[in-house]
């Protein structure tokens, strides 16, 4: 049996057909939609490497069956930059060395974008650490990650303030 869902991925709305109800969003992205930027670290929601935004919320794409996402709006790491202009969180990760091997990085960045959007942590490093603790980093770049999220959160808040002023 095949399934067709309507999905917006990184701004492109498309009908996606797949043949298997067991397909997760992660494997749909990686193996069927040629978007391998989202990474598989554990395939059971324990590491956060597969974090993407679905309708603006950060989720573990490995725990989400694709068939449940008809009509959803998905943002992956590939959809964050605007052309050559990096998203503030991406730029901040480079600047603060918020990664080493880079494998958990797409998930860290999507999680950080989601976290900042949630609006609960502000620029409190302790809350950022807590809010980013669903994303494991075995290289242990946590210091840089926290600094990067903090800096990006500040910059994005400043931008918002400027725009509304």
């Amino acid at each position: 049996m095949s399934y067709t869902i309507s999905l917006t991925v990184n701004g492109d709305r498309r009908d996606v057909t797949f043949e298997d109800a067991r397909v997760t969003l992660l494997d749909l992205l990686r193996e069927r939609l040629a978007l391998p930027g989202t990474k598989k670290g554990c395939d059971r929601g324990q590491c956060g490497a597969c974090t993407v935004l679905v309708d603006g919320r950060r989720i573990n794409s490995c725990l989400t069956l694709a068939v449940t996402l008809d009509g959803a709006d998905v943002t992956t790491i590939e959809g964050l930059a605007r052309g050559d202009v990096l998203h503030p969180v991406q730029a901040s990760f480079v600047e603060h060395d918020g990664f080493q091997c880079g494998y958990c990085t797409p998930g860290q960045i999507m999680s950080a974008v989601g976290l900042i959007a949630e609006g609960d942590v502000g620029t409190d490093p302790e809350r950022i650490r807590e809010g980013m603790s669903g994303n494991l980093c075995r290289c242990a770049a946590y210091h840089g990650i926290t600094e990067a999220v903090l800096d990006a959160a500040r910059r994005m808040t400043d931008d918002k303030t400027r725009k509304s002023a």
């Binding site: 930027g37 598989k40 790491i77 990096l86 990760f93 480079v94 990664f99 880079g102």
Partner: peptide, 14 residues
């Protein structure tokens, strides 16, 4: 860095 933050760094299983 840019490759790694944009998801374009190609790891084996990609």
């Amino acid at each position: 860095g840019v490759a790694k933050v944009t998801g374009t760094a190609t790891f084996a299983a990609d």
